[in-house]
């Protein structure tokens, strides 16, 4: 019985994959690729492959994609002067220079010797150079700016550094991923590595790839950061979530990005 369900599920997914894959080949986007060496996955699938075609249609059309309204906020924020120093992002950075940031981050900053994601980087710039108040992770300003920055790298393959100073964070993230936690005693791997593609109640379990974040989630009716998603997952296994921007989540973000190495950046993706 179990085997029948399994084959049925795989057949259905493969059929889905072929139909979507055919449409996307023309656009040159990659939603399923071979994993990086050392990955436990047989094939890396973007969340795009788990979403409904109607949801994907929303994502593919820049106009219809509701996440793009936040892109507009980010675009406005980019040249807006703020803080005591009266500077804007645009005074130091060209928008074109942001190309590749979304694929490269999180990185270990050599000067600060600290793992940083885009949100952290934005707040660091705000504090140090603009002398402005840091933004909260899920404020509209932060989401908009991060979407604006990461969207510049759309389609570029995710490629994070995990050697050198990042190695310790990588190990920490890996440990977090396989650590059972909460009342349900579940680890990330159980849903997103062992049983992806299967239903959990009415939702299809994805591989939990981070290439589309911040995503516009239909359930949230607004975009949300990756750390907000982590918190949601942690709550669902009935464990106490960590804080947004905590070292644990930062390390997990790095590990997750590595698992999705080669997937195109899809920010702002639309998910259910």
């Amino acid at each position: 019985m179990n085997i029948r369900i399994l084959t049925g599920g795989i057949a259905a997914l493969t059929a889905l994959g072929i139909s979507i894959g055919g449409a996307l080949a023309a656009e040159g986007k990659k939603h399923s690729i071979k994993p990086v060496a050392g990955s436990p996955l047989e094939e890396v699938w973007s969340g795009y492959r788990f979403a409904k075609p109607t949801t994907n249609q929303m994502q593919d059309d820049d106009f219809e994609n509701p996440g793009m309204t936040w892109y507009d906020i980010g675009e406005a924020n980019w040249s807006k002067k703020d803080g005591e120093a009266g500077k804007s992002c645009a005074e130091c950075h060209k928008t074109e220079d942001m190309k590749g940031v979304g694929a490269r981050y999180p990185i270990v900053d050599p000067k600060l010797n600290k793992l940083m994601n885009v949100e952290e980087r934005v707040n660091y710039c705000r504090k140090t150079y603009m002398e402005a108040k840091p933004w909260k992770y899920d404020s509209n300003d932060m989401l908009g700016t991060v979407i604006y920055v990461k969207a510049q790298s759309r389609g570029m393959p995710v490629n994070v550094k995990i050697d050198g100073p990042a190695a310790t964070y990588f190990e920490k993230g890996k440990k977090f991923y396989y650590q059972r936690r909460g009342q349900m005693d579940m680890s990330c791997a159980q849903c997103h590595e062992k049983y992806y593609g299967k239903l959990i109640r009415m939702n299809t379990l994805s591989q939990g790839q981070s290439n589309g974040f911040p995503v516009y989630r239909l359930k949230w009716q607004k975009p949300g950061s990756l750390h907000r998603r982590f918190k949601g997952c942690n709550k669902q296994v009935r464990s106490t979530p960590f804080k947004t921007g905590s070292d644990e989540y930062m390390a997990l973000e790095l590990y997750l990005a590595w698992r999705g190495t080669g997937l195109g950046v899809e920010t702002p993706a639309v998910r259910n």
Binding site: F63, M68, T69, D72, I73, N140
Partner: peptide
Amino acid sequence: MAIKPRVKV
């Protein structure tokens, strides 16, 4: 949120 509405014609 003060954002301009988006219109495509």
